[in-house]
């Protein structure tokens, strides 16, 4: 199941694991991504809190966590190749995997269609 936020994150859930990234639209708006400030594994985040930041030359955008949980994996490939986000924001350009703490939080998020309409 894939959901979206108004702040341009996507989250895909498989069982208890939520994979999170920024949307293709967000990546396009940012321009060439030059750096992703990845969170530490083990970090606990609440829904809506800043999880990490994605930077281009002239901007730095916080990535807000769509759901609450614990960071269990980060995409370390982004360290060396942040451009993956521009190439495949909603696939290989995922940023973190969280262990979900409250699945019901997903209900409040946007569907793909709702998100696209909101743009």
């Amino acid at each position: 199941m894939k959901k979206f936020t108004k702040t341009h994150e996507w989250v895909e859930v498989e069982g208890k694991i939520a994979t999170i990234g920024i949307t293709e639209h967000a990546a396009e708006e940012l321009g060439d991504v030059t750096f992703v400030e990845l969170p530490e594994e083990g970090k606990e985040v609440k829904k809506g809190e800043a999880l990490c930041a994605v930077e281009s030359v002239k901007s730095a955008s916080d990535v807000y966590s769509p759901v609450s949980g614990k960071v269990i994996e980060v995409n370390t490939e982004l360290d060396a190749s942040p451009e993956i986000i521009n190439e495949d924001a909603e696939g290989k350009g995922w940023i973190v995997k969280l262990e979900l703490s409250d699945e019901s939080e997903l209900d409040g998020l946007l569907t793909e269609e709702e998100y696209k309409n909101s743009l």
Binding site: F35, E55, S56, V57, K58, S59, A60
Partner: peptide, 12 residues
């Protein structure tokens, strides 16, 4: 690395 600086990050 201007994203560290005040004109972009402001209070941060």
């Amino acid at each position: 690395l201007q994203t560290r600086e005040q004109h972009i990050r402001r209070a941060k």
